[in-house]
Design a protein around this nucleic acid. Structure first.
Lengths: 134, 134
DNA sequence: CTGCATCCACCACGATACTG
DNA sequence: CAGTATCGTGGTGGATGCAG
């Protein structure tokens, strides 16, 4: 593991810190991951995405799709036949990011109980600290 | 890959969506990953972390450490000998999250050029769109 | 239908003064 | 040394009106 990290570190170039953090922020935002997951099943049009991603607003769907499009994870295809419409689809790169995402998901599922236990313990200790303060 | 995703999905329980998103947000925030990386090398005291993480404020260091502590990724140890002081260290779980993080890092490095190319292309197309609008 | 523009609420973060 | 408290600011996201 430490070996792997050293190996990866040797590949990091000057501007990569910002890039890495940018990607981490993207997958940490509210809708990007969901959009990629939904689009990975099959391409959709704007309104279909609105329905397929419960709770998202038109604004955030637009913003999210533009960001993903900018990075090349999603592409927007314009059709004219039979009637004009827009279709969104994941690119190969967009599809490939599900791999690291799955690794994160797996880690969370593996440590689900441990995290929740720690939170419960931490929160209750904070409450008692507050109690003794009053 | 799709097979792996299906397998992981079968393990997802009702409340896990929030939990997963919470973890993604944490690794997407500005300082958590850096704090874990620094602490993984060796334990540090508060002021050492302040120096080891360039640009972080005392406030954000406190906030970040408390969140990581709450989730059980970092532990705070109080010493009394020879003089009272505080020491922070990563837990086994905190150490283990470097694995999925490394996977994400690897993906970013693998797609560094492609992402930057897409951004450059997207941005220049936006500029021309703005030009034709004026 | 597919957006973009605007306004607003909230939260993350930074600067800084203060405390045991 | 190791924080906490307070304030200010920018960014993220939601609601909604308008347009091609």
């Amino acid at each position: 593991m430490d070996e792997r990290i050293r190996e990866l570190k040797s590949r990091v170039q000057p501007g990569d810190r910002e890039l890495v953090h940018g990607v981490l922020q993207r997958i940490g935002d509210k809708w990007s991951v969901m959009a990629i997951i939904v689009l990975a099943k099959r391409p959709r049009r704007f309104t279909e995405l609105l329905d397929a991603i419960p709770g998202i607003s038109r604004r955030m769907l637009t913003v999210t799709l533009r960001q993903l499009e900018r990075d090349g994870l999603v592409e927007r295809v314009f059709h004219t036949q039979p009637v004009p419409w827009t279709e969104y689809a994941v690119t190969d790169m967009g599809r490939s990011i599900r791999e690291p995402l799955a690794t994160v998901l797996e880690w969370v599922l593996d440590h689900r109980e441990e995290i929740l236990e720690h939170r419960a313990r931490y929160d209750s200790s904070q409450i008692t600290a507050l109690d003794s303060r009053s």
